[in-house]
Nucleic acid binder design. Structure first.
Length: 301
DNA sequence: CGTCAGGTAAAAA
DNA sequence: TTTTTACCTGAC
């Protein structure tokens, strides 16, 4: 089945958005198990021309499948309108050329996005994605032969933190601890965050909040600072007014708008949200990949 | 072996 | 409120 919305699937999958690790690459498609309601569904998505082509296996209707993919790949977002917006500003005009078809890769599971985002802090894309895959294989549910969901919060909150704790209780170690997934000092953050969502914070409430309210709320989660909070709200909850600002976005914004002058990350965030409004999330996404692909990033290093 | 990576938390200025 | 500092880990 084809969904007629332009997208570059490869680029979107591999763009390092912290909603989730990339789906499993097949010969010319990407596969993943996704929970739709309480039903596990295996999606196989590929690219057909400019459009998204997909199949699915699972006990849901075609309409439900389309709706889920529409959400995950943000297919209702009007890219051409966004490109017009970019082309009207000299600082941004070139960007669509370098990442045409790049879309938001939204969370299939908000909780997974939160843990992924915590894991991404002060980390490389390769390493945090591997950590998430390890966690899925160790503690997630297995479906369709070899596909794993992300483990539930009630499982993560009670995991051993490291080998020492594991051997203390078990008398031996068999990799049944968080640090064995390479998450380092983020392990206690993940446990505390899972505990928080289990006992007091209801994630579905976030959707009902204003951006500022949601930001202040999610900022209370252990291991979540301003950058990670913005990632969670953008990639996990589809708040497109978020402008996640890290050291790279700072360098790019500083280069494009402040004549190379060093601006604090927090001021870059304020600037981005003010300047780009509802397009802030997409502008951030395009800025980062434009810098990556145009060679600007090498230059700014 | 030292440095660095798409920051955060805690301490200090 | 705005700056420092330590920090798991794996790649270079």
């Amino acid at each position: 089945m084809i969904i007629k919305a332009p997208i570059d699937l490869e680029l979107t999958q591999m763009s390092g958005q912290t909603s989730q690790p990339p789906w499993l690459r097949q010969e010319d498609s990407f596969r993943e198990v996704v929970m739709v309601g309480d039903k596990p569904v295996l999606f196989d998505v590929s690219q057909s021309g400019d459009y998204l082509d997909f199949d699915f296996t699972g006990d849901i209707s075609k309409k439900q499948a389309i709706s889920k993919l529409n959400h995950i790949y943000d297919l209702d977002f009007d890219l051409n309108k966004f490109y017009k917006y970019l082309s009207n500003q000299s600082e941004l005009a070139e960007m669509s050329e370098f990442c045409r078809g790049l879309r938001l890769f939204l969370a299939k599971d908000e909780f997974e996005c939160i843990i992924s985002s915590i894991s991404s802090a002060n980390n490389s894309i390769r390493r945090w994605t591997k950590s998430m895959c390890d966690m899925k294989e160790k503690w997630g549910n297995k479906y369709f032969d070899n596909y794993y969901t992300f483990p539930d919060k009630v499982i993560i909150k009670d995991l051993f933190e490291d080998e020492v704790e594991e051997s203390l209780v078990c008398g031996e170690t068999c990799g049944n601890n968080l640090k064995s997934c390479g998450v380092g000092y983020r392990a206690p953050y993940m446990k505390k965050a899972s505990e928080l969502f289990t006992v007091e914070m209801d994630l579905s409430e976030i959707y009902k909040m204003s951006y500022d309210e949601a930001f202040e709320t999610i900022l209370k989660v252990p291991g979540v600072g301003p950058k990670v909070a913005d990632c969670i709200l953008l990639y996990g909850f589809n708040f497109k007014e978020a402008f996640p600002s890290d050291v790279w976005i700072k360098r790019i914004v500083s280069h494009l708008y402040f004549d190379g002058k060093d601006i604090s990350v927090s001021k870059v965030r304020d600037f981005g949200m003010e300047q780009f409004g509802d397009n802030a999330g997409y502008v951030q996404l395009y800025m980062f990949h434009y810098a990556r692909m145009s060679g600007l990033m090498q230059k700014l290093k």
